[in-house]
Lab assay of single mutants.
Amino acid sequence: MGFKLLSKLLVYLTASIMAIASPLAFSVDSSGEYPTVSEIPVGEVRLYQIADGVWSHIATQSFDGAVYPSNGLIVRDGDELLLIDTAWGAKNTAALLAEIEKQIGLPVTRAVSTHFHDDRVGGVDVLRAAGVATYASPSTRRLAEVEGNEIPTHSLEGLSSSGDAVRFGPVELFYPGAAHSTDNLIVYVPSASVLYGGCAIYELSRTSAGNVADADLAEWPTSIERIQQHYPEAQFVIPGHGLPGGLDLLKHTTNVVKAHTNRSVVE
């Protein structure tokens, strides 16, 4: 069995187990497998329904001669939608809004960016022009300005110390501490036991640490421990890039980060 097929099978099995364990909360999309990078042309966006009122959005972007996937989250909030992270750029984010209108038909009224990198804030200006209120932590807003990236308009308070959590509509926002970046936030959907790890969490097929220019490698494993301790009931975990899975993604990420750190020390 090929690795790609095995990865998709694991996603399907995880979703099936969740649907059985929580039949009222989960209505997993039966329309197909989780979209992969090879299936999404740059400039297009796919939506994948995880649970009743919960979707991931998947886009792709060219970077350094390669094409990478990027995940975000959409959560229903009454007759409105909360968006977590842009679709990595203005063109993708405009396509995301169009796809949401086509498939869901509810307005996106608020959006949260989970850290300051372009795959999370690139497209904020498109959201703002569409009347979406954009939010991020003060740290993310400051770092985005320093980096020359787009800056969300509103500040999220109460997320300055490791372990801080605040309720934001249908989700809980959690600051686990520094990891992929010093400002990275985690998003949890309690009604569906869905954990969105953003770039602080890796997919299972990833074996290298990737972009760690703004990471705190020493603190990252401790931050992941905080996530595990705060959300032990999480059933569906979405990484910032690639295929979702279960809580095993947290341990896998820790292993990859520690291996990278150990290699760096040896070198």
Rank of each mutant, 00 (worst) to 15 (best):
G177P: 00
G131H: 06
V54H: 00
R110L: 12
T86I: 04
K251V: 06
E145V: 10
T86F: 00
H252A: 07
A200P: 03
D125L: 14
L217D: 06
D183L: 01
T261A: 06
G131Q: 10
L97F: 05
L249W: 01
G43C: 04
E99V: 15
P190S: 05
E233C: 05
A21L: 11
E99C: 05
I100D: 02
G148K: 08
V28G: 09
H252S: 06
V54C: 06
L143S: 12
L9I: 07
S22C: 10
Y68I: 09
I201G: 01
G163D: 12
S56L: 10
T134W: 02
R110F: 04
G43M: 05
A192M: 10
P138W: 14
Y34E: 12
F116K: 04
W88G: 00
E150N: 15
T207Q: 09
G105R: 14
S22Y: 15
L13Q: 08
S30T: 08
Y48E: 10
I40M: 07
G169T: 03
P176Q: 02
L5D: 12
L185S: 03
G148R: 11
S205T: 06
L5S: 13
A59I: 14
G2L: 08
L127E: 00
H115Q: 01
V266N: 08
K251A: 06
S56Q: 05
Y231Q: 00
Y48G: 10
Y196C: 02
V42P: 11
V124Q: 11
I104M: 06
T222D: 14
G122V: 07
A165E: 13
S38K: 10
A133V: 12
F26Y: 08
V126S: 13
E147M: 06
Y34M: 12
I40L: 14
F174I: 04
V42E: 12
L97H: 02
S162D: 14
V212R: 13
S30R: 08
A15V: 07
L6M: 06
V75K: 01
H241S: 00
Y48D: 11
R206K: 14
F174C: 02
Y12F: 06
V166C: 05
D118Q: 15
D77V: 04
A209Y: 10
I50Y: 06
V237M: 03
A234K: 03
P35D: 11
V121Q: 00
N255H: 05
N211K: 10
G43S: 10
Y196F: 07
A51E: 11
T60D: 04
W88I: 00
I17W: 05
S7L: 06
D214R: 11
H230F: 15
S7K: 14
N211M: 15
G32C: 15
N262D: 10
S208C: 06
T60I: 06
T254V: 11
D183R: 00
G177Q: 02
P190T: 05
T114Y: 01
S38R: 08
P152S: 10
W55E: 00
T253M: 01
Y196V: 02
L143Y: 13
Y175I: 02
T207M: 07
K258F: 05
P69N: 15
T254F: 07
D118A: 12
G197H: 01
L204A: 08
A94V: 12
L159N: 00
R120I: 00
G242A: 03
K258L: 09
P232A: 11
S208R: 11
A66D: 09
L47E: 01
G2C: 05
E157R: 14
V45H: 01
G89P: 04
F63S: 08
S160A: 14
T114R: 01
I238H: 02
L143K: 14
V37F: 08
D52I: 05
D64T: 15
S56K: 05
H117A: 00
S22L: 08
T114A: 02
K8R: 09
L127S: 00
L159M: 12
P23E: 07
E101M: 15
K8I: 15
L9A: 07
A144S: 11
A209Q: 09
S160M: 11
L6C: 11
L97V: 05
M18R: 05
A179K: 03
S191N: 08
T140S: 12
I74Y: 03
Y34Q: 06
N71Q: 07
L82Q: 04
E80N: 15
H57E: 01
V67L: 08
G32A: 07
D216C: 05
G158M: 07
G240N: 03
A19F: 10
A25P: 07
H117Q: 02
P41E: 11
S208K: 13
S27D: 08
I84D: 00
E219Y: 09
D248F: 06
L82G: 02
L9W: 07
D77E: 09
S22R: 09
D164A: 11
P69H: 15
R167A: 08
F236K: 05
N211I: 14
P176R: 01
H260G: 08
D125Q: 11
E44K: 10
W55Y: 13
A129L: 14
D79F: 13
S191T: 11
Q228L: 15
A179S: 05
S205F: 13
V37Q: 10
E267P: 15
H180I: 00
L185H: 00
V75M: 04
E80L: 12
V212K: 10
V187A: 08
C199M: 00
V126D: 05
E157V: 15
A19H: 03
I17G: 05
S193I: 04
G122I: 05
M1E: 05
V126G: 07
Q228P: 05
